[in-house]
Nucleic acid binder design. Structure first.
Lengths: 355, 355
DNA sequence: CTGTTAGCGCCTTCAT
DNA sequence: ATGAAGGCGCTAACAG
């Protein structure tokens, strides 16, 4: 008859001390690695702790040392690779720094402000996606109570931000399209939906300004989900709009637009070029391959964790915005000649045809 | 000159009590919503708390009430939609239950056991992906110290598990292929890489047994990343293997195999059929559309959070395994006639052609 | 209905 | 090098 694994009530520092025959102070010292403990004591304590499978209770420790050794991260949701990558980068760096991460998804939360404040009560600092609709109130909820870092958002008074570069790559992308001889470009996406999209439209507009010809058209203000893209493509097919190139706010949008267009008989890129942002997996699999912008999302997450930790440990907020550079990934949907290969096996996700 | 947002040192229950002119007990009572407080007191406390932006310190509260109001979740990583969906379901349900979730990614963690034990010290219960290589040691690290729930893994002595159904859908999928007249089927994926894949191969084998003809071939034991799929496809193209249908352990694998095969001049499904698992986004975008199995991953996550909470609040572990049912999604890569449409705009991700 | 008080488990001076 | 004791902020009896 096997021993039934019970929910033992968890050893405390007292039980360890008792078993080792020392005081709790010694136990604490040994486990915190502080110096000035005799080897004899150390050994006894270690043995006892091991035997009891002892780990200091997080809450008690936090209370005593007056910090949580935890970072909070607030994301809108997790669909698509963007947030996941960000989270992976964040978690991995945080772990290296000895911080656990408590995650909160804003999506569908009734009282976000309250939730965020609760979160703030159990972490040392908060990183928050700055380009979400929900951000404003959430930021105010934490303002001043805990170190706060905005990711992909605008810095504010006393709130630092970090993000990937948008305007410059948007300009490069747009110019690339213009170089292909396209003249009737449309930006598909709503600049009001976040600073990143706003900046992308900005770059789109700048590219137009920097050369003779018509100014940039007004953005097509739609959300960036697949369904929105399909609907938009149908307007296009119905002849409601005139364009020979589409700069979409992200790949999800670009992909659904492109697919619907193709179903409707339009040739991409011959009739119309389509480009996006993010370099999602699907972008390499569709035909034509989707030209897009790759952002160092994982690094962004890692840097956020890093910087947040600095903030928590006393660094004073920079007022500027830290920016990571991005990379154009040219495939065939913009009009470039198709390249046959997808990522060389084993080499991760590197496309050969990169600028 | 704007007021500089300072990092105020955080109000305590004492400061609130002082400001409200009552005892800390009253503050606690009001904020915990306990009954038996005069309206006058309640109002004063609420006002003071509001003014001070007071939220009880998580650690202190946890220590006093002797639980953390937090669930731990251990995942291997976050690439692909599977884990993300799971996490979304988990987080959302946990939030409804008033639990925060502290997330830990096993990927690349040097000393997982230690990390997991640390995690266990700051949560009330742990859910862990059971189908990962890293699981074994991690499970042992928590065994008996905290309620533990395995997701998509095998139940163990005293450890409960929950998962999506695998064998049955594998059998159905395989039978479907046999019904299409395919006779030389190959299972692509390593059954030793996790209980889910093992069970899928099991169903694959069962489908063969249940009808006359050759028994199931041995599985092609490769990992399930894109690069692995490409390599395998090349073996196939080189003539090293004979098959007219491929049952791949997941979509990522199926997609990369299919793409490489097509590049190499093979027609899918005419020369060879390819099917997978997960119904990732790309599966609807490629041509032919990928036939696959859709799992209720988000629900799985939600149920895990639910059940874990029950465990934490005193339910005794079931010894069985709870199983959620899955759904075949037939598209064209199996030999079915192609259907023109992807998900109808606005209706989420429902395919018309579903079994 | 309200205030006082004793822990919750741990870290950390301060003596010894 | 070690132990005793106070305190972290909060909750929950227990008195009034």
């Amino acid at each position: 008859m096997a021993a039934t694994p019970q929910q033992r009530p968890g050893a405390t520092i007292y039980s360890v001390a008792a078993l080792a025959g020392v005081s709790i102070a010694s136990v604490s010292r040994v486990l915190q690695g502080s110096t000035g403990v005799s080897d004899r004591t150390r050994v006894k304590v270690l043995a006892a702790a091991e035997q009891l499978n002892y780990v200091p209770l997080g809450a008690a420790r936090s209370l005593a040392v007056r910090h949580h050794e935890a970072h909070g991260l607030v994301l809108p949701e997790l669909s698509g690779p963007y947030y996941s990558e960000l989270l992976m980068g964040f978690e991995s760096r945080a772990a290296e720094l000895g911080q656990s991460v408590v995650l909160m998804l804003a999506g569908g939360k009734a009282d976000l402000s309250r939730a965020v404040r609760q979160l703030a009560a159990r972490v040392d600092g908060l990183a928050m996606l700055g380009s979400a609709a929900t951000t404003e109130s959430a930021v105010r909820a934490v303002q001043g109570s805990k170190p706060l870092l905005l990711i992909a958002g605008d810095p504010r008074e006393g709130v630092e931000a970090i993000s990937a570069e948008n305007t410059e790559s948007a300009r490069a992308l747009t110019q690339h399209l213009l170089d292909h001889g396209r003249r009737r470009l449309l930006f598909v996406g709503d600049p009001d939906l976040g600073p990143d999209i706003r900046d992308r439209y900005l770059g789109f507009a700048q590219a137009h300004e920097s050369r003779p010809g018509p100014a940039a058209a007004e953005p097509v203000r739609i959300p960036f989900r697949e369904a929105d893209g399909s609907r938009f493509a149908e307007r296009l097919l119905a002849g409601g709009l005139d364009a020979d190139a589409l700069v979409c706010a992200n790949d999800e949008l670009a992909l659904s637009v492109m697919a619907r267009l193709q179903e409707g008989g339009k040739a991409v890129p011959d009739d119309i070029a389509v480009v996006g942002w993010d370099d999602v997996m699907t972008a390499r699999y569709v035909r034509p391959g989707l030209t897009t912008v790759r952002q160092p999302v994982r690094e962004l997450g890692a840097m956020a964790a890093d910087r947040l930790h600095e903030l928590v440990t006393g660094a004073s907020p920079r007022d500027g915005l830290q920016v990571l550079s991005t990379e154009l990934v040219l495939r065939a949907s913009c009009g470039c000649p198709p390249v046959a290969t997808r990522p060389p096996p084993g080499s991760g996700s590197c496309d050969p045809h990169t600028v």
